[in-house]
Amino acid sequence: MPFTAPSVANKGNLFRIGPRIDIQVAVGELVTFNILQDTLMLIPARELQPVRPGQLLVPGWPGWQEGARQTFPYRVELIAAKRVLASTWRADDNFLVRPYIPTGPATGVPVKILTCTIKNIVPQGRLLPLSPGDQAIAVACYSYEVEVVYADRAGRTFTLILQSGPRRQQAVVYPASGYLEVNVTIQCLGSRIISPVVPPPGPPPPYKPLRLWLETRV
């Protein structure tokens, strides 16, 4: 039964007849694996004192004496810091494709992509020890969203969200007594709107007869 026939199954269904349009986004991914260790550090610190009018004298002004100096007291502070024991990285590309599906009769066909923004990066990392030895496999699992803003021929703008899906990278590290920190950097490399052209069906290939010679031996 054709889909234009009046039937109960076709009631309320919307059919779009026209060329297919795809929104394509190329994304670059950079995952950094850091092995860190908590430590303490002593640093010199200088106290800042409020300056009163006339306290600091400029050369040439009344009261200035050649060779005069102003001293500020120094002290040492103990702060919490992180030491990087090892670091490595992995890079990959992700290619996202989203077909254009109209949400209503007033929705325009996309003709130009205005912005491409990465949002909601969710990284997770863990260490898988290798036995024997002091090596381990650092695993990073992450996901993110790509927000695409495009315009139609009338200049109206629309927002589209593309999901990256589950992503994974891994590397061999030497954790020693440190712990793993995973940093994920995502960047839009490019985006475009294309309309794939389906080639028309051509004539069937010509029939080529096959000849066989059978030989019998007695």
Rank of each mutant, 00 (worst) to 15 (best):
Ala68Asp: 08
Asn13Lys: 13
Ile79Arg: 01
Pro73Val: 06
Arg90Asp: 02
Val198His: 11
Lys82Asn: 08
Thr4Lys: 10
Gly190Lys: 07
Ile161Trp: 07
Thr115Ser: 13
Gly178Pro: 00
Leu210Ala: 11
Arg52Thr: 00
Asp38Cys: 09
Thr157Cys: 11
Leu48Tyr: 14
Ile193Ser: 05
Arg211Asn: 14
Val172Gly: 12
Ala136Asp: 04
Phe95Glu: 07
Tyr174Cys: 14
Thr117Asp: 15
Ala138Gly: 08
Cys116Ser: 13
Gln135Pro: 02
Ala140His: 04
Ser177Phe: 13
Arg20Tyr: 13
Leu36Ala: 03
Gly155Phe: 00
Arg156Phe: 11
Val8Ile: 14
Pro19Met: 15
Pro19Gln: 14
Ser7Gln: 09
Leu36Val: 00
Ile43Val: 15
Ala176Cys: 12
Ile35Thr: 03
Thr4Tyr: 13
Ala26Gln: 09
Gln70Arg: 12
Val139Leu: 04
Ile17His: 08
Gly108Arg: 06
Tyr207Asn: 15
Phe3His: 13
Ser164Leu: 05
Tyr179Lys: 05
Gln187Lys: 14
Asn120Tyr: 12
Arg20Trp: 12
Ile193Cys: 06
Gly54Arg: 03
Pro73Thr: 11
Ile194Asp: 15
Tyr174Gln: 15
Thr117Cys: 11
Arg98Phe: 10
Ile121Arg: 06
Phe33Lys: 04
Gln55Met: 04
Ile137Tyr: 10
Gln37Ala: 10
Trp64Pro: 01
Ala176Thr: 09
Ile193Met: 04
Gly18Ala: 03
Ile17Lys: 07
Pro105His: 12
Val182Gly: 02
Val184Glu: 01
Gly165Leu: 05
Pro19Asn: 13
Leu36Cys: 07
Lys208Thr: 15
Ala140Leu: 02
Arg16Pro: 10
Arg167Pro: 06
Ala91Asn: 11
Lys208Ser: 14
Val25Arg: 07
Asp22Lys: 07
Pro209Gln: 01
Pro205Gly: 07
Ile137Gln: 13
Thr88Pro: 04
Asn183Leu: 10
Pro206Gly: 04
